[in-house]
């Protein structure tokens, strides 16, 4: 589906970004990417999305080497990034070349925003705005969905709601998901595989497979054990990056 072959992207000073990342992602897989700040997680997503083109190595989608923004890729940013002059309805349909009403309505329903079609972004709460952003990313039916810390600006309850929403949507549409996060619980709750980046520039340090079926319990004991393991892997006690 998606394979990343020895991809590096470092910035002029050489200490930020990431290097030599190899990763193969299967159709429908959810990958959680964890790492301390400054290890290039977000940069990795920018490279994959085609927004950042100054990298070495190859990104291959379905056997095709890509070097630009790709139709099969959708992206959800940390902030909703809605167009303030468009109503919810038009924001969701923003990426569609042809606005198909039934399709937009379907996704408005999927993210639970029925009745808010004619609201402007200024009238939405943070959680609602991020729902709109999720619907906007999904409406073009991307096969690969990139999420860059999508829930980090939300309060704990909204965050959990939206994680469940994302899980539901994933179960319905079976898209491949790459989720960058600094929330270990979030990664454990959603991901089939967790990738840990470490260092400056970041390198792939460890891969952890989670074979539990979803939806998972947030208080699962096995996950708690894994969380401990990840904390040690991230070596937070000795990290300079914090």
């Amino acid at each position: 589906m998606l394979s990343i072959e020895r991809v590096s992207r470092t910035f002029s000073n050489g200490t930020t970004g990431f290097k030599n990342i190899d990763l193969k992602v299967e159709q429908g897989e959810v990958i959680g990417i964890l790492g301390t700040s400054g290890c290039g997680k977000s940069t990795l997503l920018r490279v994959l999305s085609g927004l950042d083109k100054q990298y070495d190595g190859q990104v291959v989608i379905d056997g095709e080497t890509v070097h630009d923004v790709h139709k099969k890729i959708g992206m959800i940013f940390q902030e909703p990034r809605l167009m303030p002059w468009l109503k919810v309805y038009d924001n969701i349909g923003f990426g569609l070349q042809k606005k198909v009403q039934s399709k937009i309505a379907q996704y408005i329903k999927a993210v639970g925003l029925v009745g808010f079609e004619n609201h402007y972004p200024k009238d939405l709460s943070g959680g609602m705005a991020q729902r709109v952003a999720i619907a906007r990313a999904l409406v073009t039916s991307p096969e690969i969905l990139l999420l860059d810390e999508p829930f980090s600006a939300l309060d704990a309850f909204t965050k959990m709601q939206l994680q469940d929403l994302l899980l539901n949507l994933w179960q319905t549409y079976q898209s491949t998901i790459l989720l960058v996060t600094h929330d270990i619980d979030e990664a454990l709750y959603l991901a089939d595989r967790i990738i840990i980046l470490r260092g400056q520039p970041g390198e792939l340090y460890q891969e952890i497979k989670i074979d539990k079926s979803k939806p998972r319990s947030r208080g699962d004991k096995d996950l708690a054990v894994l969380k401990d393991e990840i904390l040690q892997l991230l070596d937070l006690s000795h990290s300079k990056a914090i």
Binding site: L51, K71, F94
Partner: peptide, 11 residues
């Protein structure tokens, strides 16, 4: 710039 990136994602 962030809004323009949204447009770029959609080609």
């Amino acid at each position: 710039r962030k809004l323009i990136e949204v447009g770029k994602i959609y080609h």
